[in-house]
Computed example of a mutant assay.
Amino acid sequence: MKTSSLYPALLILSIISCLSDGISEDESKTLVRSSVPEIQQITYLIEKDPNDAILWQQRGILHYELQKYQEAIGDLKKSLTLDSSKLDVWHLLADSYLDDLQSRKALETMEYASSLFPDSIRSLLKLSEFQLILRQYNSALQSLSRIQSLDHDNADAFFMKGMVLKEVGDTLTSITQFQEATKMNPRMADAWINLGQLFEARNDPDAIRYYDAGLAVDRYNTHLLHAKAQFLGREGDVEAAKTLYGELINIDPLSAESYYDLGLLFLDQDSTVQAQQHFDLSLKINPMLARAYFYRGWTHEILEETEAARLDYQQALRLNKDDVDAEAGLERLGS
């Protein structure tokens, strides 16, 4: 693989050396044990040809999809010791570290990848995302400036700059970056949503214009519809919000968040039974939605269904031990 003269072979060797530390013999034995037929098949092939980087990569992908992140890390690192030229493997290794709550290693992996592929806009974008997660704002802006030196009109770079500047509190410049992003890519829903939220935070009546502008080019985008429905609810236009949530549910009947938000709107209107029904629906779709348990518990408490309320408050606390509202609910019930 050809590398830039700015990144000498010594750096590449140090990266590979770092990867080689990844799998001990005992760890390798652990990795091959699996009840998943697809993994068993690839493991059999690896045993036949342990120097095939693609096989290690394929097994790493399967482990990642099964959320077995440490196993994925081991396989992907092995793949890269055999062939360091696969950009997608570097990216998946970084994602595996991040999902395994090893954010520092995730960042280091993307730094390595960007040094190996200095002109890869995909890698620089991903690096900037990780830098933002770790609050390395200046480094993120440098990565994004590098992208714009390669592609001045890159919409994703404008969007990410907007995100970084929003995070550091530079609202005005953030807005200009999101606006530029929507000029380059009018279907960039997240940029329209961020613009709407930033203008709403300033109590600017133009906020809704940005949600509508995004929907004008992408009418059935569920993220935009949800953001506008939430905005309308916050503005007190409850009936319009309910109509939008109904449209959202028609598009995506498994949107737990839409049922949950509708439940909140019904609760605000003192329609307790309807609110409870919507919290029921949200929890059937997503039983890990902690706040839905709290609010359903509250509806049970209003309806004097004490035992059902207690059970929901307890479940809310199991999912979020810091839920002070659920704690207060249990205290009211004498639990």
Results as ranks from 00 to 15, higher is better:
141 L>V: 03
18 C>L: 15
56 W>N: 02
143 S>C: 04
282 S>R: 08
290 A>R: 12
216 A>V: 03
152 H>V: 14
150 L>R: 07
169 G>W: 01
195 L>H: 05
124 L>G: 04
214 G>F: 00
34 S>H: 01
1 M>D: 15
168 V>D: 08
245 Y>F: 14
202 R>K: 13
234 R>F: 01
256 A>W: 10
332 R>C: 02
165 L>D: 03
71 E>P: 13
314 Q>S: 11
102 Q>F: 10
219 R>L: 15
37 P>Q: 04
152 H>A: 06
25 E>M: 09
332 R>A: 03
128 S>Y: 05
262 L>C: 14
256 A>L: 15
261 D>S: 12
229 A>K: 06
2 K>G: 14
262 L>R: 13
148 Q>C: 01
192 W>P: 02
180 E>Y: 02
13 L>I: 11
71 E>W: 01
207 A>T: 02
71 E>K: 12
150 L>H: 02
63 H>Y: 13
28 S>N: 09
255 S>H: 05
88 D>R: 15
263 G>N: 13
172 L>H: 07
302 I>S: 04
183 K>I: 04
307 E>N: 03
248 L>E: 06
13 L>A: 11
272 T>C: 09
106 A>N: 09
242 K>A: 04
2 K>T: 15
140 A>T: 04
100 D>A: 13
236 G>P: 08
195 L>G: 09
122 R>N: 12
136 Q>P: 07
146 R>K: 05
73 I>K: 00
102 Q>T: 08
299 T>G: 08
193 I>Y: 00
42 I>V: 05
119 D>L: 13
179 Q>L: 08
162 G>F: 01
209 R>I: 10
253 P>K: 12
130 F>W: 05
30 T>W: 10
289 L>S: 10
49 D>R: 08
111 E>Q: 07
248 L>W: 03
170 D>M: 10
229 A>M: 09
129 E>K: 12
123 S>D: 15
291 R>H: 14
302 I>Y: 01
7 Y>Q: 15
144 L>F: 08
213 A>I: 02
272 T>S: 05
78 K>W: 03
99 D>W: 12
154 N>G: 07
118 P>E: 03
204 D>T: 08
185 N>H: 03
